[in-house]
Amino acid sequence: MYAPATGKQQPVEQEVITEENVFERPDETVAFFPKQVLYDLFISTLLLLAICALSYVSPAPLTEPADTATITYVPRPEWFFFFYEQMLMFFPGYALISFGAVVVPTVFVVLLFAVPWLDRGPRASSTRRPFATVIGLLVVVVVLLNMMMAVSRIINFPGQ
């Protein structure tokens, strides 16, 4: 079925550990079943319980039927688009709208695809590759900050 990845065929004792294969087999292993499956099941059960509870505590929304002719409705994105929506505020005018709305996200996605080639060093631990870690943290901080700014803008909007 599966073609084994390089190095896996050799028994542990004969294997010569190199920088390429050091991360191919962990020090200590445990069978996927039952321990890991049990952990997974535990988390999944917790999630399912939370989801079912939320379904009744805060039912899935269904607002007024669609009306393209409203002048009172305030469109708000879902929370996972908050950071993107907030970012659009910073790109006004013809030239910048298309830059902020389409070009910047596209470049970001391309960079996301390229991550394994932008950071090729053999070090995996985030403390040993500070540049990648700092960039990653910056992205996280920018996204969270934008989300918070969007939330504060929405809360403070008059007539909401």
Binding site: T70, I71, T72, Y73, V74, P75, E85, L88, M89
Partner: peptide
Amino acid sequence: HLGCPVRWLVKEDGGEFLCPCHG
């Protein structure tokens, strides 16, 4: 800007059209 429904906002010195999405 992004097509949201613009509303009329009454102010002391007349008023203005305001887009609720991005202001």
